[in-house]
Nucleic acid binder design. Structure first.
Length: 382
DNA sequence: TCATATGATTGTGG
DNA sequence: CCACAATCATATGA
């Protein structure tokens, strides 16, 4: 490595700090150079001890020193050798599974994904709203959506801020390092590494943001979408319709998909609500046939009344609204659950008798009904 | 305020 | 995925 000493005159004298060398022109060249180099190194070593202004000035003078390129290349060479050992420590690491989870969830919740209202839960509400039913749930849902949008906005602005800050900081650091690379041997790779570190730090912050966003969404969900918390009973009408269907299909109270849709439409609820309702109904009916029988008879009476077109004295409440087409309405009670329990009639208090009476009034063959009832309860005893 | 009713969810099994 | 059973959490009426 040759050092291209430029010209004989030392340019450092312009700086006050270098004043001490003002008069050294007389010395023997090699001696002089050695001393100069030693001195420069000394200055570099102590540069951090100085005040900013001082250091700045000295850096400048050092930069302009005729020996600088030579020294710099030496340092670079040394550095190149030593840095390589640090180089290959951290390489490509697999994406953090937790981060992926968070990402997935945010996308699923419509927070991180493409800008679009509603997301997954919009469909459910659409069906409910389309049927003109629950203004309540619609309101709650729009409330939920508003909050979700809010969260999304916060999330995005924060994300943007982070990105901006990250870029700003990165460029700042890069500039700084570039600037320093004039006095200090800094390989581009080092800068790269620095950028990587910065990015990683910001990624960590971003992950925290994602995490807290997830939490917020979860809380929001539990507050708004957990219907158990804000349960509304179905409207009287809806319950009537559902009961009517249930008791008129008691032998097979499993509405098909189409039937469920129809019921959902009529009741202003969702299909899954219909499914829930039937699930609950079946199990609860089975659990308590004795009491439910009242209802069964009641609805049977209603349908019967409707079927018989007896305008007369059927005192069933709301007997008006139904038009059960099938004449088998009264027979349905022989259905699936009848063989589960023997004591169905012993709650047979007045109401049951009364209902029986009602059905008698409406039916031509009360006896057959009774016998069929008796028959279906026979099985369960074993 | 309590007991009961009721819609929804969770866990299990086919 | 569906039905069932148990359970939760609220709604409702006395």
């Amino acid at each position: 490595m040759d050092m291209h000493p430029q010209g004989g005159s030392v340019s450092l004298t312009s700086s006050g700090m270098m004043g001490q060398y003002g008069g050294m022109g007389e010395q023997e060249p090699s001696e002089q150079r050695k001393q100069e180099i030693g001195d420069i190194l000394q200055q570099i070593m102590t540069i951090t001890d100085q005040s900013l202004d001082e250091a700045q000035a000295r850096k400048h003078t050092l930069n302009c020193h005729r020996m600088k390129p030579a020294l710099f290349s030496v340092l670079c060479e040394i550095k190149e050798k030593t840095v390589l050992s640090i180089r290959n420590t951290q390489e490509e690491e697999p994406p953090d599974p937790q981060l992926m989870r968070l990402d997935n969830m945010l996308i699923a919740e419509g927070v991180a994904g493409p800008e679009k209202g509603g997301g997954s839960s919009a469909a459910a509400n659409a069906t409910a709203a389309a049927s003109g039913g629950q203004p309540d749930s619609a309101i709650e849902h729009s409330d939920y959506r508003a909050k979700l949008t809010q969260i999304r906005q916060i999330y995005h602005t924060e994300l943007e801020k982070y990105e901006q800050a990250c870029n700003e900081f990165t460029t700042h650091v890069v500039n700084l390092l570039r600037e320093q690379s004039r006095t200090r041997p800094i390989a581009p790779k080092e800068i790269e590494r620095m950028v990587g570190i910065i990015r990683k730090k910001f990624a960590a912050i971003e992950m925290q943001l994602k995490q807290s966003t997830c939490e917020a969404v979860m809380i929001l969900r539990s507050r708004f979408l957990d219907a158990r918390r804000k349960r509304r009973n179905f409207s009287k009408q809806a319950t009537e319709i559902l009961n009517e269907y249930f008791y008129s299909h008691l032998s097979n109270p499993y509405p098909s998909e189409e039937a469920k849709e129809e019921l959902a439409r009529k009741c202003g609820i969702t299909v899954s609500q219909v499914s829930n309702w039937f699930g609950n109904k079946r199990i609860r009916y089975k659990k308590n046939i004795g009491k439910a029988q009242e209802e069964a008879n009641l609805y049977a009476a209603k349908t019967a009344a409707a079927a018989a077109q007896h305008g007369g004295h059927t005192e069933g409440p709301g007997a008006a609204g139904y038009n059960m087409p099938t004449s088998t309405a009264g027979m349905q009670q022989g259905g699936m659950y009848m063989n589960l329990n023997g004591d169905n009639y012993q709650s047979g208090d007045a109401s049951v008798n009364q209902l029986r009476h009602v059905s008698q009034a409406g039916y031509s063959s009360p006896d057959s009904q009774h016998s069929s009832n008796a028959g279906m309860y026979d099985h369960q005893l074993d």
